[in-house]
Design a protein around this nucleic acid. Structure first.
Lengths: 181, 181, 181, 181
DNA sequence: TTTT
DNA sequence: TTTT
């Protein structure tokens, strides 16, 4: 079947990267995607103006996102909808819908203070040989820096070198003990 | 921002149509969209092979879907991701992610017994007069029957003759606030 | 059938607006969309790195594009592929492929000198009554200014930048089973 | 940048497969994609009802398409727009726009007489180990047979048993420079 | 809870 | 030049 999603929105927070026990990088963030007709037409009031859509990226793409995306940045995401479900502590089945991204395009240059300097942002940061991702698919490149899924974990899992106390207050120093699996 | 989804999958059940208190038709169904590499590659076993994605349609498109879609039918859906949330009876916030469809394409002719005869399936069942609508965007038409969002309720609200109480457990808490237009 | 295109690229020149004899606005411009892997991988040289894709917009959207887009601006376009053909002066049939846009998102604020000031750029600039476009489709709005064919005038874009998923107690239970590859 | 196209339409003819001098398989076909509102609304007459969009596939995907697609078949294509140009024999620059497909989904089973039997149609015919493609992206699988770009020539290059001289008039001037990877 |  |  076919399952394709394209979003443009802004990160609600800095992305969060983890490693699975097997050492695979996973980065999650939420994209705030403004709805059309925000404001509600003729003068009506609408409570919600945006959809907050959880994004998940894996491997090389996860690392690039963790390194170059920041809260508030305008970002394009291409991927597919995934619906997971699990049983919660009350024995109730909970459904989680996320977009598994295979392409992420950084639409804003990012003159912020934290994170790698923007000049360092890769115009293309694709993967290695086994790259599973959309290379030929409509990928990225050029201007504002960009990133594609691709490649095995490949070589160099880089550290998250941001100040763990910056910005959102939540500690980013996660050990694998914190992983829920 | 931009928010676009295109899916091809099969209905897990017959669609369910309701009317809002204001008389607006809403139809919901779930699309089973097979994941790539189902089967798990070299011989691995994967328990789940598909994503089950809830689809919501409104107005004329809702009626056409209720009339012509049936369980198992191969169907293309175009729309946007919407994330609603509400407080459940335990005071906990629940997030519901759905695809609000503005285009639905019937990819299978449907020789089944229930529902209107397939010959009756509209090659195009769009909306009102000036509506170029969702429609306009990548619309449907031709071969197997097709339907576009757009237009006023238009014409003939036909009855949903299935059991209105045959819920699937999940609350159908769609209010007119969810009307995307 | 279904026909949907989403592009992000930069204008190669200022847009050109015309009016049809019937007084309908048409605006054309070309989007330079960088190809993936520009540069040619390991050190290869490739002469051309982008596809130059002609875009056509109509009516209200045409006017907004003519007013707010300028050469070099990063722009997202949503629409459909149209293939026209005509007989040229040598009696030869010529095929012209264009993207008929129904949604255009201005991804850069535009501090340039010509054109209306950027502060004037509409966060949403929907169309008039004959609007044929994707109003309900997952359009645009917000951030950098944006435009959709069709729709209501739109109103008071409010900012909701909070993440409803922040610290909501939902476990981040992504396991390696979720690896899509 | 981002460049993504999704089409559903019918093949106007059987696909044509070639090999480049380097032995890379290339398959081309044209998709007839019905326009929305064919017929022209209120009673108007419209001469053209569809867009005829040239599709190009490479490598393993090319071979699968050549083997399993046939004239008239309803087909979904995912890919990107590519604009090539060359100087023709009169020294004039000619622009050719094609969709480079990385995912092709066979929406009809195909009970026709020619080509491999439908039972032989692969539910997934992805590539080999190095496959960079669509794979993870929202690919295909299941029901009606399906195919993704990816992988080396892989496996079993089957023969093209159609007349190699049955051209359609348009020069097939695709060189390996057009290889998108 | 699920489709082929 | 075109598909159903």
């Amino acid at each position: 079947m076919l399952n394709r999603v394209i979003l443009i929105g802004r990160l609600t927070r800095d992305p969060e990267m983890r490693y699975t026990p097997a050492g695979v990088a996973v980065t999650q963030f939420t994209l705030a995607v403004d709805r059309p007709f925000s404001g509600g037409g003729q003068g009506g009031e609408r409570e919600r103006e945006a959809d907050f859509i959880p994004i998940v990226t894996w491997r090389q793409l996860a690392e690039t996102c963790a390194n170059y995306l920041r809260k508030g940045r305008l970002t394009a995401v291409e991927g597919r909808i995934q619906v997971r479900n699990y049983e919660n502590n009350e024995g109730k089945r909970v459904y989680v819908t996320e977009v598994i991204a295979d392409n992420v395009r950084f639409l804003e240059s990012g003159n912020r203070d934290n994170g790698p300097r923007d000049e360092g942002a890769p115009s293309y940061s694709g993967g290695g040989n086994n790259s599973y991702s959309g290379g030929g698919q409509g990928g990225f490149g050029g201007g504002g820096g960009n990133s594609q899924g691709g490649g095995r974990t490949g070589g160099t899992p880089r550290n998250d070198n941001r100040d763990p106390f910056s910005d959102d207050g939540r500690p980013i120093d996660i050990s694998e003990d914190d992983l829920p699996f």
